[in-house]
Design a protein around this nucleic acid. Structure first.
Length: 842
RNA sequence: GCGGGUGUGGCGGAAUGGCAGACGCGCAUGGUUCAGGUCCAUGUGGGGGCAACCCCGUGAAGGUUCAACUCCUUUCACCCGCACCA
């Protein structure tokens, strides 16, 4: 009677019906509590891969389960469609980036539909559509109004292969381009920046308000922001004759308590002062050599491993404000222009790098902060002379200790965040020679790109007025389609694009021809989903406030800094502009693990990919979905196994057969619900599994939830093997099948729908049913098995009726381990209700 | 160097401090089948014993506890992020 499980037929049938009925469209007018479930949107770089399948399946289970549990669920999808891969593909295949991009979007859309994901397709956004990117330009203008946009010249990361600049966050690993892996070079260029550093402190502090984020991601962001507390100290520059001038050079230090140990002063090779000081002197050639060598090297090579430090004396001195000492100014390649002020005070006794430099060039190493138990302490106390060097020192000491040879501060505790630090700062501040300061590693976000396939920056250069924003009512600045990327063209090759008039004075002007970093497009798409079709505003605030923040975000760990930091920044600016109430975009974050084959991440270049489409064709989308959920917890890497896929397919067929057989059995003279022992056992198992699966889904334990469903199917077969067809309790079996199908629904939506609609209930969609509830009274066992331990080892077990008095349990337990108690004295008895009884004997 | 994470059978993986190895894969035996596959049943951490049972076992070494994969200390290996950051 029952039909074979045929995923191919079932899946396409239900996909068409769900689509026709708009089963997954949502509105903001529900009485139900909202839940916004979001997966990171794909880049349309070809077919979807297993990483997408895993990411979107996890999100789909969360979204579908939430719907059944009574939430109004927003679950949208879109495409992150601007970017270099489209240009590269266009060059390779002699097409236009838009042709390639939209074709891929259609292919991916079809694959996602085949997977049966519950998206509200009416909200789809594609970032290269003008009705999306115009709002990206609008955001740019708003940022500009708020002083968060800057155009300035500074050393930037240049990818020679991509022929564009990159943000700091896009330089990864050993200093390579995040996208193509080429070595990144340093260039001095004028570029557009978003001033994310204005939000550095809040981006750091607010991490504490994100308990739903993995610790790992928060730590990575905190490290990236890299807050250091310390002081700015002003050193007076001396003239050629060594006489102090009014010019001050500022350094940042975390250790002002070591100022008395400063014996030289360092400038980064890029520091403008370097050549100014040494130029035209006997030191010029040596200083120039250091500067030129540093310029030849990439910043990567400069920071690689243990390398010899190299420097040159400029011939000039600066005055140490705490003791008036003149210390020589050197230029060295271990000082970075991009951190702090590009100038540092060197304390060789307290900093290993300075120590090495001092040893190399024979500069003095006077102790400033030493260990309290350092034998040198006594010697220094006794000595009237300043100890300038101690040959015993093997390396610098940067731990906590006591300040020595430090004038009025001598004897104070020193070290990071010590009293010595705060007292020195206070002293400096009183004399205008310094102040407390905080320094961040985070740099401003360089957002301009010298590429065609991106969102045009809405700015105009006017000879008379300077930089002028494109007026809001002239948006969008449309990206022209007639640019021939195969000839290496960019917007700068198209006068009809860039020739314009100044919005302010009406004179001839030139449009900006750079486009924005694609990460600007992906930093606000989750807000646009809230009101995706709005053509008069970026979104309706009420709608955004209804859905935001995203309750559950799911995506790869590779975005731990880039996308997630930028999105947090955007959301905070939006809040300050007043277009959202949300302060953080993503309340809970799940970073899913990678899908690997033979221990390696699947990749086209490695040639170890398993195509989702093949798997769908062979086993069906439901099998693939359940498989990727079952093989590992969502945040762990998943090792692909073809046998594992087959195993999951077997389970689905087994579940299918169970439900169809049970529903086909017609025996009206069935005993009432769960009266036989076997029937009671099955019913108990049903309710135990409901409880287990409910908890597991809540905690994203999809692998254990599926395991519990397997146990339920196994239990149902056990029952049917034990009880003859005539005696089988049809009500209990139906309750079992109904619960099973309801719980399977988020995992294997097509099969569940087919079983629900054509076998179990024959009415309504399974996906709009309520989630089953576990009845604790039914789930409770009437008999409990307890382990009995003697001195911590299990020596026996007892079965007692539920509710047996503790005394009776204990004596039964004693009986069960009689042999082990013989001749011994029971010193202690520990009873854990429902678990075990433990005797301690002597 | 700093920060984060992971170590459990042949494999993927389970275990609010309470019977380690759920569930699945693989494997073995038997059944169904003309046969292969499918499917069904049973077994499956290591060692010892005819056996009821006993000993060992969660990277390593200590500790706390009646009881430790789980908590504490030390340590090893691997993975990830940052890094001449002053």
């Amino acid at each position: 009677m029952s039909e074979r499980y045929d995923p191919g037929a079932i899946e396409s049938k239900w996909q068409a019906i769900w689509d026709r009925d708009k089963l997954h469209s949502v509105a903001e007018d529900s009485d139900l509590p909202k839940k916004y479930v979001l997966e990171m949107f794909p880049y349309p770089s070809g077919d979807i891969h297993m990483g997408h399948v895993r990411n979107y399946t996890i999100g789909d289970v969360i979204a579908r389960a939430a719907t059944m549990q009574g939430y109004n669920v927003l679950h949208p999808i879109g495409w992150d469609a601007f970017g270099l891969p489209a240009e590269n593909a266009a060059i390779a295949s002699a097409t236009h980036p838009s042709t390639w991009t939209y074709a891929n979007i259609e292919r991916q859309k079809a694959s996602l539909a085949r997977m049966g994901f519950s998206y509200d397709w009416d909200r789809t956004v594609v970032t290269c559509d003008a009705d999306y990117y115009r709002w990206g330009q609008w955001i740019f203008l708003k940022f500009w109004e708020r002083g968060l946009v800057e155009r300035r010249s500074s050393p930037v990361n240049w990818c020679p292969s991509c022929a564009t600049v990159l943000a700091n966050e896009q330089v990864i690993g050993d200093g390579v381009c995040w996208r193509c892996g080429s070595r990144v070079e340093k260039r001095e260029l004028e570029q557009w920046y978003f001033k994310i550093t204005d939000y550095a402190q809040e981006l750091l502090d607010a991490l504490e308000d994100l308990p739903g984020w993995p610790e790992r991601v928060k730590t990575m962001q905190a490290n990236w922001i890299g807050r250091s507390e310390g002081a700015e100290v002003l050193f007076a520059l001396c003239d050629e004759r060594g006489e102090p001038t009014d010019e001050r050079i500022t350094v940042f230090t975390t250790r002002p308590d070591t100022l008395f140990g400063c014996t030289f002063f360092l400038l980064a090779p890029e520091h403008p002062l370097a050549m100014r000081l040494a130029g035209g002197t006997e030191h010029e050639s040596e200083v120039r050599a250091v500067i030129e060598a540093a310029a030849r090297e990439t910043s990567v090579e400069r920071s690689l491993g243990e390398r010899q430090k190299w420097g040159a004396f400029t011939g000039r001195y600066v005055v140490n404000p705490v003791n008036g000492e003149k210390v020589p100014v050197w230029v060295s390649d271990y000082v970075l222009m991009e951190y702090g002020t590009g100038a540092v005070m060197a304390v060789p006794s307290g900093d290993q790098r300075d120590f090495e430099f001092a040893r190399q060039y024979g500069l003095p190493i006077p102790p400033a902060v030493i260990r309290e138990d350092d034998p040198m302490l006594e010697k220094l106390r006794a000595s009237q002379e300043r100890v300038l060097d101690d040959v015993d020192w093997e390396c610098a000491y940067d731990g906590p200790g006591v300040m020595v040879q430090s004038g009025r501060f001598t004897g104070l505790p020193g070290g990071k965040n010590s009293r010595g630090v705060s007292e020195v700062i206070e002293w400096l501040a009183e004399r205008g020679a310094g102040r407390a300061a905080v320094n961040y590693r985070l740099r401003d976000w360089l957002i301009s790109r010298q590429r065609y396939w991106g969102n045009p920056i809405p700015a105009i250069y006017c000879g008379a007025c300077g930089l002028v924003p494109v007026p809001e009512n002239e948006l969008p600045v449309v990206l022209p389609m007639d640019v021939d990327i195969t000839k290496g063209e960019t917007l700068a090759d198209h006068p009809e694009f860039y020739e314009t008039t100044c919005p302010q004075c009406g004179g001839p002007a030139r449009r900006e021809t750079d486009t924005m970093d694609t990460f600007t497009c992906s930093s606000w798409y989750y807000l646009r989903y809230c009101d995706a079709r709005n053509d008069s505003a970026i979104w309706d605030k009420a709608k955004a406030d209804y859905w935001m923040p995203v309750d559950q975000y799911i995506g790869g760990i590779e975005h731990a800094i880039l996308h997630l930091l930028y999105s947090r920044f955007f959301t905070k600016v939006f809040r300050d502009i007043g277009i959202t109430e949300a302060s953080e975009p993503f309340t809970n974050l799940l970073t899913q693990g990678m899908v690997k084959l033979d221990g390696h991440v699947m990749s086209k270049s490695r040639g170890n990919v398993v195509a989702p489409e093949d798997m769908i064709s062979r086993f069906g989308a439901d099998t693939l979905r359940a498989y990727v959920l079952f093989m590992a917890p969502p945040d762990k890497d998943l090792e692909w196994s073809y046998e594992g896929v087959e195993g999951m397919h077997r389970f689905l067929m087994r579940a299918w057969r169970l439900v169809t057989e049970v529903c086909a059995e017609v025996s009206p003279d069935v005993p009432p619900l769960g009266t036989s022992d076997a029937g009671k056992d099955l019913r108990r198992e049903v309710h135990r599994v409901i409880g287990k699966v409910t908890r597991d889904v809540e905690q994203f334990g999809f692998n254990t939830a599926l395991a519990a469903l397997m146990e339920l199917v196994n239990a149902a077969y056990d029952y049917r093997n034990k009880v003859g067809p005539a005696e089988r309790d049809r009500s209990t079996q139906l309750e079992c099948c109904e619960s099973l199908v309801l719980m399977l629904a988020p995992f294997v939506p097509h099969m569940s729908e087919e079983l629900w609609s054509n076998y179990v209930r024959r009415e309504g969609s399974v996906h709009v049913q309520g989630w089953p509830t576990s009845d604790a009274r039914i789930a409770a066992a009437d008999e409990i098995e307890l382990a009995v331990q003697v001195n911590g080892k299990v020596r026996g077990r007892v079965v007692v009726p539920a509710g047996t008095a503790p005394d009776a349990i204990e004596s039964a337990a004693r009986e069960a381990v009689n042999d082990h108690l013989a001749g011994k004295e029971i010193v202690k008895t520990v009873a854990v209700p429902g678990k075990l009884v433990s005797f301690v004997v002597r």
